[in-house]
């Protein structure tokens, strides 16, 4: 039987090569080992309580159905991967309490990124080094960073639009004139009009 870890070896190798750290993956069998040269960090795991956990409370008795279908309550709506995903892409079919590459979810392991990183490898790398994700507390000393799922709901990872905070004020006693400058017609739309009216706006 081929072990899943062997299956993902080419992927991991590819990731590591892309990241330029292939030399560190001395033992390909060991799989993804993180980025050793990334500054050390601790991950602040999720805070929000899990609603339906443990999954196996129900799924122990239910048959594993691999083909996608309409999800019903209490499951969250799934909007991840533009329709390509189904629960078992991430959840371990054998033990739903765990994800495919992580220990049981509720142990608040700091390894969720290994799962996300299987697809979002660039983001994961940036997260290791601090260009993605969020550091909290101190810029100095111990590096505490947030887990992927602290910001992204894994079932609907896109961050939702919302009302912005109020706009800035002008000096008290002064009014900002109503109305906005004329919107600029983008160059591509000018091109559609056959560039009949040359516009004055230019790129800086």
């Amino acid at each position: 039987m081929i072990r899943p870890v062997t299956l993902c070896f080419p992927l991991v190798y590819l990731i590591l090569t892309m990241a330029g750290v292939a030399s560190h993956a001395a033992d390909p069998q060991a799989g993804f080992q993180g980025y050793p040269e990334a500054p050390a960090f601790t991950v602040l795991p999720r805070e929000a309580p899990l609603k339906n956990y443990p999954c196996m409370r129900c799924h122990d008795f239910l048959k594993v159905k691999t083909e996608p279908r309409q999800l019903r309550a209490p499951h969250p709506e799934l909007d991840h991967g533009a329709g390509r995903f189904w629960c078992l892409e991430c959840h371990d079919p054998e033990n739903r309490n765990s994800l495919r590459t992580t220990p049981p979810i509720a142990t608040n392991s700091n390894e969720i990124h290994t799962l996300c990183g299987r697809c979002h490898a660039t983001q994961e790398r940036d997260w290791y080094f601090g260009a993605h994700g969020k550091r909290v507390g101190l810029w100095q000393g111990e590096r505490e960073i947030l887990d992927c799922v602290r910001c992204h709901n894994p079932h609907q990872p896109a961050i939702q639009p919302r009302k912005p905070q109020p706009p800035p004020a002008v000096r008290s006693g002064l009014e900002r004139p109503a109305g906005r400058p004329e919107p600029v017609v983008p160059i591509w739309e000018q091109a559609v009009d056959g560039l009949e009216q040359p516009r004055e706006q230019q790129h800086e």
Binding site: P161, P164, V184, P186, Q201
Partner: peptide
């Protein structure tokens, strides 16, 4: 700023729509 623009003269700092972005 509009997509495709880097001209700060076209920028608006007082935007206040229902939702952003």
């Amino acid at each position: 700023l509009d997509h495709g623009q880097m001209n700060l003269e076209q920028a608006d700092q007082y935007y206040d729509p229902e939702t952003v972005p």
